[in-house]
Each structure stands twice: as C-alpha cells, then as structure tokens.
C-alpha cells in the first residue's frame, strides 16, 4: 500500500498539538511505518513543504502574513486540510482578547517602546481563510482523536463524528456535577465532548478547551452561571479563553 503523505506544521501556537502526536509513543512505530512524514519541521529537518500531501495537520491560529502564506501553501498542496487543535479551529488562547484590545495595544504591551512592531493581525481560525476538511479539537487534543484520524486516513476515510457535550461523558463517568452540586463555573453543557470529561473527573470545572458543541444553548448556560452568582464579565472571560466571539443569545 502506498504510504499516506503527511504534513504536520504549526502557525501561531505553542506546538503542543504537534507534541501530542509525538506523545503517542505506543503508536509512533506504526505511524512511521505507514505514513510518509514529508514535512514535519518540529520533528525532522529537510522536509518539503511543497508537498503534495494526502493530509496536512496544521496547528495554531492565523495571526501574521507569514501564517497566512503557510496556510494557503499547505491548503494548496494537500488533499485534506486538518485544523489541528483549538487554535486552528477557533483561534484559541491567542485570540482570547480579540474583542477587548486592539492589536496595536497588545503588541505595544509585549514589545514595548516606540520601535517598529512585527506585522500581525487579530488571531483567527483557519475557517476564516480556507476550507477545512476535518477538525481536531482540544488544547491540547486527545491522543485518541489524533490516532483515530490517522487510522481513518489509512482506511481512506475520516473518523465518525461525535457531537455531544462534555456533560454526557461526565455524567456517564459518575463524576460529581461541579455546576449543580458545587456551583462552579463549568462550561460542560456547551462544550464538545470526546475528552471523557478529563477535567471534571479530577474535580476541575470544564474550561471549554474543545470549543462549542453543535447547537449549544449558550443563552441558557449564561443564565445558569448568572444565577449562580458569577458576573457577566467573568463568564465571558472564561468562555473566550479558547474561543472568542460566542453568540450569547443563541438558544437554537
């Protein structure tokens, strides 16, 4: 069988998503046997970013002209483009202040002084610029979901879609409901599951790293949190941590 040709790359990001793949230690040998890692600058030198690729797994938000060039180049060179991780899918932590501050303010805060500033714009998800064939959510993504995707690529398909909120897995694991029983600022009801409620299982409220679940009842979640005494600012800040631009009136 012809090996599947992959590009694995990152734009404005922490490289954590790419690292998740390298952390799949039990599977790496199989991955190397069955895939051709044509371009994976984080793990190997001398790759060819011109492709062609069967799939490009790209992490990070788009926030510089260079990011955009890279994104277009990989999109053009690859049959499938995978938004790999929450930054690629929603903007992620880099975009959390998009609604609050101008880009210039942020750049001045970081780079200071009167000197010239690097060219950059408000971090945005891939979907704003190119078509995306598959999305892996999470900050960082679940190893299982990365392996699921790679295995599906080998089989000539994509993984089946799951679309239930964190609460479903959380309740099934018999965790204590942090929202109802402890009155915590838990985003479980509006966040896509698939993480097996990793955080609530250890007593940490869901922070929303996997982005909105399909048809999230955002308005009701907001009401639930307001009723529990959280301020609107605090709630919005938490919700924007991994995905800016929620529609707080959405009930669907």
């Amino acid at each position: 069988m012809k090996p599947v040709r992959l590009a694995i790359a990152g734009l404005t990001a922490c490289s954590g998503c790419q690292l998740t793949l390298l952390n799949c230690e039990d599977e790496l040998a199989d991955v190397l046997r069955r895939f051709e890692l044509v371009y994976f600058p984080m793990a190997q030198s001398g790759g060819r970013k011109e492709g062609p690729f069967d799939a490009a797994l790209v992490e990070g938000a788009v926030s510089t002209p260079a990011d955009l060039d890279m994104l277009f180049s990989l999109r053009n060179a690859s049959r499938l483009l995978v938004a790999y991780g929450t930054c690629a899918a929603f903007g992620g932590v880099a975009a959390m202040n998009n609604g609050q501050s101008t880009r210039e303010e942020l750049l001045r805060t970081v780079y200071g002084g009167q000197g010239s500033l690097p060219e950059s714009f408000a971090p945005a998800p891939f979907g704003n610029f190119v078509s995306v064939d598959w999305t892996i959510r999470g900050c960082p993504p679940e190893k299982d979901e990365v392996v699921e995707l790679l295995a599906a690529l080998l089989a000539g398909t994509l993984p089946p879609v799951r679309s239930y909120p964190v609460c479903t897995e959380c309740r099934s694991r018999e965790n204590l409901c942090l929202l109802l029983e402890k009155g915590e600022l838990c985003l479980g009801p509006v966040i896509q599951g698939g993480c097996n409620a990793r955080c609530p299982a250890t007593g940490i409220a869901c922070e929303g790293c996997r982005g909105p679940v399909r048809e999230a009842n955002v308005a009701q979640e907001l009401e639930l949190l307001l009723e529990r005494g959280f301020g609107r600012d605090e709630i919005e800040r938490r919700m924007n941590r991994f995905k800016p631009g929620w529609d707080y009136g959405q009930r669907r």
Partner: peptide, 23 residues
C-alpha cells in the same frame, strides 16, 4: 434545555445507542 444528555444518561430505561466504527 441545554441538551447536556444527563436525563437519558441517568435514566434507568433510556437505551438509545449510537453505532460508530473506528479503524
């Protein structure tokens, strides 16, 4: 309704299931 799924996860008679295949 937030479609969290808790009602049916916790229901003793809810049995609807999804079937998925993973290579």
């Amino acid at each position: 309704c937030v479609s969290c799924g808790a009602c049916s996860v916790c229901c003793p008679t809810c049995y609807c299931f999804d079937v998925r295949e993973y290579p």
